[in-house]
Write a protein that binds this DNA or RNA. Sequence first.
DNA 1: CGACAACTTGACGGGCGTCAACCGGAGTGG
DNA 2: CCACTCCGGTTGACGCCCGTCAAGTTGTCG
Lengths: 247, 247
Amino acid sequence: MVTSRTELLQFVLRKIESMTRLDEDDRAALRRLPLRIECVPADYYLVREGAGASRCCLLADGYACRHKILRNGRRQIVSFHVRGDILDLQHLLFPIADHNVQTLTESVVGWVPSRELRQLAHERPAIGDALWRDTLIDASIFREWVLNVGQRDARERIAHLLCEFAARGHAVGLGSAQGFDLPMTQAEIGDATGLTAVHVNRTLRVLKEQGVIAQDRRQLIVRDWPSLARIAGFHPRYLHSSVLRAA
Amino acid sequence: MVTSRTELLQFVLRKIESMTRLDEDDRAALRRLPLRIECVPADYYLVREGAGASRCCLLADGYACRHKILRNGRRQIVSFHVRGDILDLQHLLFPIADHNVQTLTESVVGWVPSRELRQLAHERPAIGDALWRDTLIDASIFREWVLNVGQRDARERIAHLLCEFAARGHAVGLGSAQGFDLPMTQAEIGDATGLTAVHVNRTLRVLKEQGVIAQDRRQLIVRDWPSLARIAGFHPRYLHSSVLRAA
DNA sequence: CGACAACTTGACGGGCGTCAACCGGAGTGG
DNA sequence: CCACTCCGGTTGACGCCCGTCAAGTTGTCG
């Protein structure tokens, strides 16, 4: 578990440098950012829809998700996040949160005041571009999710979710060629794919019976990557990342 | 139909000023932007997925949508656009398009080289913030669409689509208290909501039978705004706009 | 070892997809 | 002026994917 300021900054730097070339002044400016580090438990609300938000949240370790809840209690998870991700960069320019951010597991986060981050983005164009690019990648992933829940059936949806999560985790050194940690429950997978927990369970069983995946506790083992990617129709271009698992 | 450079810039200025306060220098800089104006027919591809893109497209008049197509031919429309919208601001920082942009009707568009726009965003922070904010609003709308196709039933989905389209059109002076122009076909509504054209037709009939909406040619008449918004669960906060139709 | 959450499995029903036929208006050409 | 074509809209029959409800089972943590 990452707990020090230096380690957290390391992750953020790595993430930003994966998107833009920084010079030494950029790096120094990032290191000077006021950053409050906090360890939070699983299922902890980092941001609540409708609440004011004058700071941004960096995920240093653990897993998190963003979601919206309807009056009738139905919930849609709109993204999953791994360490290094910036969870709510929209608060750089919006004062009110339009969705919730919640941890999936025990996590370590760093808080940065929006004001400082915005000023940094203005003063150092390389950093501003990197942050902007990050929000654009977010948007691209949301588009893919609209496609996922709108046009694919249960098996394809879940396969796609697994491919994306594997690819994004892989980019920050999580998981291996065999598989990866799956921190979310079947109910959460359901909330992300527009399916019920029951149907997620049945669909995962099918994928296991077909020899595509296997599970051991919270580890998801991918027995057949090409099949999984083919079922999902996974083409990682939409991730706009230079560090990609081959499809 | 808008056709002059001045008129087009008028729309873009209005849009940007709805998001940020500009000074006279900002406005002058925007007016100096190199802008190639083009009139294009309906169903015209402005951007194709996978193609390189070194310019951004402003919609001056008409209607457009963005969509992704799967191998099996299924299509997901991820957004609809009205005049004043910037259609592909992601090309400011991404060289390759991850989705298609296509007109729905005969339209007038303006092309700006990414390079110039990016430079302007750097030189004039007010403009940079406004553009960034626009991409963040895009992302917020995508999140709402994930929720829409993931958690709502057919009637709610279509009602929500109509509410959003009305609100966004209203913000740029389209439509009236009675209703608005509906430029898309039922098949296109289906591609946007993850439904078939047949089921869209049946669902619209239900909304008409319940006295919520009516149709006269391409005009959609809203007989009962509160009911439509209630059915949709429409809360316009996610549009982050100061110019909003009351929910 | 008890409690609780997550997972698993079966029975049943409904919302929506699929297929197919038909209608109606706009544009086109004779 | 009228026939033809085509696209979009409309309606019905039928079936399946997935939701709902319910009853276990497994795993984990105190």
